[in-house]
């Protein structure tokens, strides 16, 4: 278990440090200016997870901003993980946004390079990519730990944030992925949320290499998981969403059942993967991404046996809030 000092003091950080198996979930931001559309989604997630990820125009599709979603979530007492992508903002904007977010109560930030604009609904947009995920991590760590901007200018009050990054063990070059994880840790990552895992064998190889490098002692790894709605949805994701790798065996298994039962099968696959990844050394939690199926997250967490596990563990670590107890309703 990482023994470094507390970074930002967020609930997610305390849960991970206590040794409890953490659960985070992704909130799909609405195409709406109505705050209720955010709260409706947050409500179904909050009872089973330690923090809610607010995505930042993922897949380069425009939605409500992660900053806006986080403002609403912190206002209602939820714990967000604010995702920040380098695709749409330069270093000036991102440093300012970190201060604004921290002032609103955001305590977890996920630093991403971001999907290319070609993947989204407005491929004509100009991609920024002034920084990359690793230089963003180091920059935000400097704000937090040194109390300085990248320019060297001093802050009056540094932001207290738990810094995260993504990694994709399922994309080539496979032997480089653990090394790049090492670079992210060196740049300042306190926790990692991986891309969707549909290939447990590949994940095991990745985690074994990471553990050999001692990275499991320096960073908390949460494995990305999610239910596939149908064989067609799986094929669409595999073709359209950058970085998502779904092996043929998974698609074939979905195709092997009648259409109306594919969603149930997709959920079963997700639950099986959660149960398998829990046993892998170095894995400290799961990150559930249920694209437009938020209502399924609670069922998945419960049926995977995670609620029972988490309740057992919270008895052993009473200093952190119990499951579902720290998220007041809006």
């Amino acid at each position: 278990m990482p023994v470094s000092p507390m970074r930002g003091g967020s609930r997610l950080e305390r849960v991970l440090r206590s040794g409890r198996f953490a659960v985070t979930a992704e909130l799909n931001p609405p195409d709406s200016a109505d705050p209720q559309s955010v709260y409706d989604r947050a409500l179904v997630l909050s009872s089973v997870c330690d923090a809610i990820n607010a995505t930042d125009a993922s897949g380069a599709n425009v939605h409500m901003s992660s900053m806006g979603v986080c403002a609403l979530l912190t206002r209602a007492g939820y714990e967000p993980v604010m995702q920040m992508s380098c695709r749409d903002r330069n270093r000036i904007a991102m440093q300012g946004d970190l201060l604004g977010a921290a002032a609103m109560g955001v305590k977890n930030v996920l630093c991403l390079t971001g999907d290319g604009v070609q993947a989204g609904d407005q491929p004509e947009a100009r991609p920024v990519f002034d920084l990359d995920s690793i230089t963003l991590l180091r920059t935000l760590r400097t704000l937090r730990d040194k109390g300085r901007f990248l320019s060297g200018r001093k802050l009056e009050e540094p932001p207290k944030v738990f810094l995260g990054a993504a990694e994709n063990p399922f994309a080539p070059p496979y032997d480089v992925r653990p090394k790049r994880l090492g670079k992210k840790v060196e740049a300042g990552a306190d926790f990692i949320q991986t891309q969707y895992c549909f290939d447990v064998t590949r994940l095991k190889q990745f985690m074994a290499a990471a553990c050999d490098m001692g990275l499991d002692q320096q960073v908390f790894v949460l494995v990305g998981v999610g239910p596939l709605r149908s064989a067609k949805a799986a094929e669409w994701m595999r073709d359209k969403v950058p970085g998502v790798v779904i092996p043929d065996v998974v698609v074939d298994r979905l195709k092997g059942v009648p259409k109306e039962q594919q969603a149930k099968e997709g959920k079963s696959i997700c639950i099986e993967i959660i149960q398998q990844v829990q046993e892998i050394p170095g894995v400290r939690g799961v990150h559930v991404m249920a694209y437009r199926q938020e209502e399924l997250v609670a069922e998945i967490i419960e049926e995977a046996g995670l609620l029972a596990r988490r309740q057992r563990e919270s008895m052993a670590a009473p200093d952190v809030p119990r499951v579902g107890s720290a998220s007041p309703r809006p």
């Binding site: 390079t113 690793i134 993504a166 994309a171 080539p172 790049r180 670079k183 950058p242 970085g243």
Partner: peptide
């Protein structure tokens, strides 16, 4: 993506670029 610390997580299974599918990933 002008990465100085690549490769990104979007590399395709065939080792090609997420943004320009015809191009092998520079960082690979």
């Amino acid at each position: 993506k002008n990465l100085r610390n690549g490769p990104c997580g979007g590399v395709r299974p065939d080792g090609h670029c997420e943004v320009v599918p015809a191009m092998p990933c520079v960082w690979m």
